[in-house]
Design a binder for these strands. Structure first.
Lengths: 145, 145
DNA sequence: TATTGTTATACTCTATAACTATA
DNA sequence: TATAGTTATAGAGTATAACAATA
């Protein structure tokens, strides 16, 4: 069944479909809800535990300055906490607060809800499996470009 | 094997991996090369033939104003052509020029090249099939959110 | 009145450059 | 010198609001 796919064709197909997806998803945003980079940063802290802004920036493939802005916004709302690294005065260690964990776990954000609805209505179980299987693949791809 | 996937989990996994992918991809951009929305608009004209700015905006899920800006930039470089609709004076019909088609077909853009390289180096044939299969699924999802 | 498209303006997300503080 | 982070500024990509022209 391996029909000798051209990697360029795969690249194009992914780029187009993912571009469309992101544009659409960005439009779906409620009031005081988490933005996309905020959600990503919180999820990263939840998955990987407390870490420094620089490390988060690398993981999310953005500049330290951009991550700094996102973290500052989260800190202001009490969703993350900043503590100085005891061993290295230059470093700060960011961690999720209870409120941050709650915000992340509260699945009733407009964006997630709408997306989940579309998935439930428009995809077969087999297609859901396919999408779930492809997520880590896309992540790996992002890291190797 | 249908392990009763939670649609919310699928939504989260997709959002995170795709966010990462787009951020990374955006960084890979050569000199006078096509931007992401420009590439999408050209590809759309190539796939669907000449059409109006408004129709393109709907297809790409962005506002008519945003599409107008993208098209103006393409027009200035001679990659698309604008003609008045003979039957309706409000409408304009955009079409690909030869130069536009060439720019689109010239696969040696930095972005596509880097992505194709990563795919060739990091994915098995089966994984490529998986990615190719999931692209239309993501596109459908984007349209139904 | 409704529709197509444009102009003006602003917001989000990201970048680069220049700086401070610590190692 | 090198590294972690901040501040200042700019650019890409999008939006909404207000407008003009045509239907």
């Amino acid at each position: 069944m391996t029909s000798d796919l051209d990697v360029t064709d795969v690249a194009d197909a992914l780029r187009v479909s993912i571009g469309l997806f992101v544009r659409r998803l960005r439009q779906v945003q409620g009031d005081g809800e988490l933005t996309m980079p905020e959600t990503s940063a919180l999820a990263r802290l939840d998955r990987g535990g407390p870490t420094t802004p620089g490390a988060l920036a690398k993981l999310e493939q953005i500049s330290p300055q951009s991550m700094g802005a996102t973290l500052a916004a989260l800190e202001e709302r009490g969703l993350v906490e900043r503590r100085p690294d005891p061993g290295d005065g230059r470093r700060a260690v960011m961690s999720l607060t209870d409120a941050g964990l709650l915000a992340l776990r509260n699945r009733r954000t407009t964006r997630t809800t709408e997306m989940a609805k579309a998935l439930a209505a428009g995809c077969s179980p087999a297609e859901l499996e396919l999408l779930m299987a492809v997520a880590p693949l896309i992540e790996r791809l992002a890291q190797s470009i």
